[in-house]
Write a protein that binds this DNA or RNA. Structure first.
Length: 198
DNA sequence: CGTGCGATTATCT
DNA sequence: GATAATCGCACGC
């Protein structure tokens, strides 16, 4: 799975007219990872994470954000990669009709899919997308190959937003992103954001 | 420019 | 009934 995560960088997600190039991902193991939804075993929600690789796991975060994971490993082994950010490369008008609705000022282009919740909104995800086969041409949500980034531009660091007393974020440095991408540059690359240097 | 908090609901105990 | 893999805005300096 840790081998698959960086390979997702640069690939393209497609939902209807919208296409998003992935620039940031985060890996989650299954029962041995306290930060994973699969940590407590199989439930109705997490069942797809125990299914075959190449399917989508979509969940609702904080009651309002739909976040997308790509299931890795084979049936019986829970592992997934959370897609944290990307850049809109097609269908921008469809994205703006959702993202800019009821807002006084439009988003900057790089903000349209920066962050897991925003990316889910950009793609128009719903819980109905959970379990979709990303490799099936008839699926509403697909994963296409894109130009891979330069291997030298790939960075790795602590995960974001993982709760737990032991600091699981630093225990598993499983966040991967493309250095120099505008859609990730503001996302505390390398871990904690520093204040101005002394 | 940095920090703090409210929104809103599926899911699990 | 509590919790959560977040976001956007308000406010204080």
């Amino acid at each position: 799975m840790l081998e698959v995560a960086p390979l997702l960088l640069g690939s393209v997600l497609q939902a209807g007219p919208v296409r998003v190039r992935v620039t940031e991902v985060e890996a989650y193991a299954g029962v041995q990872d306290p930060g994973s939804h699969a940590y407590r075993g199989v439930t109705a929600r997490t069942a797809v994470m125990f299914g075959p690789a190449g399917h989508a796991y979509v969940y609702l975060s904080y009651g309002m954000h739909h976040c997308l994971n790509v299931v890795c490993e084979d049936t019986g082994v829970a592992a997934a990669v959370l897609v944290r950010a990307g850049e809109v490369v097609a269908g921008e008008s469809s994205v703006r009709s959702r993202r800019d609705a009821g807002r006084s000022r439009p988003h900057r282009w790089v903000d349209l899919a920066r962050g897991p919740g925003r990316l889910g909104s950009a793609l128009g995800l719903t819980l109905g997308h959970s379990g979709a086969d990303l490799c099936d041409p008839s699926s509403p949500l697909r994963l296409l190959r894109g130009a891979p980034p330069s291997p030298a531009a790939i960075r790795r660091g602590p995960r974001v937003g993982v709760s737990g007393p032991g600091g699981e974020a630093t225990a598993y440095p499983w966040r991967f992103w493309i250095e120099g991408e505008a859609s990730v540059s503001a996302y505390r690359p390398g871990g904690v954001r520093r204040r101005a240097a002394p």
